[in-house]
Design a protein around this nucleic acid. Sequence first.
DNA 1: ATCGAGCGTTCAGATGACCGAATGGCGTTG
DNA 2: CAACGCCATTCGGTCATCTGAACGCTCGAT
Lengths: 264, 264
Amino acid sequence: MDAVTEAAGGRKADEVKSAARVLEVLELLGRDGARLSLAEMASAMSVPKSSLHAILRTMQARRWVDLDSAGTRYSLGLKALLTGTAYLEGDDVASLAGPVLDTLAEETGEAVHLGRLDGTDVVYLAKRESRHALRMYSAVGRRLPAHATALGKAVLSQYDAAEVQRRLNWPLERLTPDTVTGPDDLLAQLAEARLRGWALDDGENAVDIRCVAVPLGATPSGGDALSCSAPRSRMDDARLEEVASAVTGAAHSLRTLLKRLGQH
Amino acid sequence: MDAVTEAAGGRKADEVKSAARVLEVLELLGRDGARLSLAEMASAMSVPKSSLHAILRTMQARRWVDLDSAGTRYSLGLKALLTGTAYLEGDDVASLAGPVLDTLAEETGEAVHLGRLDGTDVVYLAKRESRHALRMYSAVGRRLPAHATALGKAVLSQYDAAEVQRRLNWPLERLTPDTVTGPDDLLAQLAEARLRGWALDDGENAVDIRCVAVPLGATPSGGDALSCSAPRSRMDDARLEEVASAVTGAAHSLRTLLKRLGQH
DNA sequence: ATCGAGCGTTCAGATGACCGAATGGCGTTG
DNA sequence: CAACGCCATTCGGTCATCTGAACGCTCGAT
């Protein structure tokens, strides 16, 4: 029955306007690295300046946004730091993953990640850096399109074709020349991943980066997966298999820890 | 000129009610590790259930809070993860501190922190873990009273007595038997820290933990400091001096990096 | 089975927020 | 030196949110 609200190209139904705006401000400042003026934000959000002004005053008073000394540029405040880390501490999967990621990072020597599917994106929940000098960039909280990452494909491989069709926005966004964009290609890759037990990203998200991921199965909060990424120069096909089995082992350990937790 | 707003023992001036409530929800879920029901939150915040209900619906639709499968317990959502890390990425001090902390952690082998004063609290902006098995607990985003931490005292030692009196809430909260609570004791410690160049926390915040901190001087966003913490068993007076000089060196490096950045 | 306590949810009236235009301050341009 | 552009900020009328009480529901206890 919620189709009614979404139909007619309409606004969201019963939303509290200023509540939604607060969240939109946080998302805006979080995305663009901050440093925006009131006028810039108002136009970006299509909200009257005067309305946004009152909201920003409230947020500033509570230290959720900072105003620079000139009084003209807003950025995220210190209170914003609290929520991110608190989310991770309150999450069973993320907090149990620590030791597993440590082990996996040590075994492989490469960058390893815990990711979670959120809509059409994958969000990094935790990471361990590669010990090599040549590193890939990543950050906890960062989002990447699910269809272009091993993590995303690992999670999606647990769903059936109809579910995948429903969840993603077609056509898929292209990030590199190798990004898969059509449903047929993606579904074929997912089927392969399902059989094999792990998903592959071969330069589909960042050129020259190969990445292997294994889904964690039914976790309370949607779909999680573990991955290991490295530059192609350190990840030939043979090495890929090695890494995949290490990641599979780590995923198995984490699943075991989660089961144990579930039984109190 | 910001004294005007704080003066007059001010009631909340023009706050947008639902905006303030959104932030309060995030703070509440962030503090208590989440898992709260609507009724619990409503009573904790002294807000009618029905009002909070609409706000939580809005937050849930945007994935800033999650509702468990039973539909009765709220926790932080995935969007909350974005702001915390974005704050750190947008902050010059925090992003330059990485390598400096790495070096300091390697030199000392103990837990090292970058902290920032926020009101009467110190917030951890970054940390590196001790390499010993016996570790102290800490987390980025976590808050501790400034007067009971080396980080807080390091920052406060840069202000004069009147400023310190004004900034803190007297009497100071007692966390351990050794916490200083009176103005005279604290001001004496701050004067000592100013002369010596580093501040000390000797079990005033957590029993058996000793911590050394050095202020970073005038940073754009208030007061920052670097610290190194260890259990008393690994931190006798001689070791304290050693560690203090390592932290001082690290603080100097970081100040140099910041100056260089300031000159483009 | 019956009751009751707790939960999330709904609704119509009262209150407070939102909006657009107008104001005053500041740095930059002609 | 003056005029402009851009900025944050204020103010009263209109409308949407907030409110408190009532509802249906799922539990656990009687």
